[in-house]
Design a protein around this nucleic acid. Sequence first.
DNA 1: TAGGCCATCTGGTCCT
DNA 2: AGGACCAGATGGCCTA
Length: 166
Amino acid sequence: MKTKTKGKKQRHTVDKEAFSEESAMRKKELVKCLRHKERRNGGNKESSKITTARAKHPWSNKDRHLRRLESNERERQRMHKLNNAFQALREVIPHVRAENKLSKIETLTLAKNYIKSLTSIILNMSNGHFPAAEGMGGAWVSKLYQHYQQQHGDDDREEHLQKCST
DNA sequence: TAGGCCATCTGGTCCT
DNA sequence: AGGACCAGATGGCCTA
């Protein structure tokens, strides 16, 4: 049910551009959507689902349609927020492929490795010494260490560092 | 052309 | 009750 006609490479700027094109696109979407829905409603399972949904919310067709459009819009906004968050994450993760946009799964994986690596660097710098008397900094590193140990133990720090550098 | 990635729609479920 | 969240389905675009 994707309606964007832009290419993948242009998607970096698509979010903003798309908003200006949205009203025109929306009509197109609706037509496609209705066709899609018709197809889906062809199966018995789907029609029974819809029957139960309608029993739960006994709205008029017009009302239902309006509410659907409203939730679609909310869902779009939610996904846009999510994508903005992904973009913000991309911008703080060091990676080699600067010319190409990282995919979502790549972004998450790199972020995870990056955090692990930073954690191990901090622990190495603190050299296993973090008395509580040092104040907030010491307590924080201590907590970090405990968490890190829970997650991994000490033996794979080098591996994380290597992953980070790639 | 197949496969990967993505945006969108949709109905169900959870949460406030 | 209504919005947020989630997962499945679908179809478009791009690349190898």
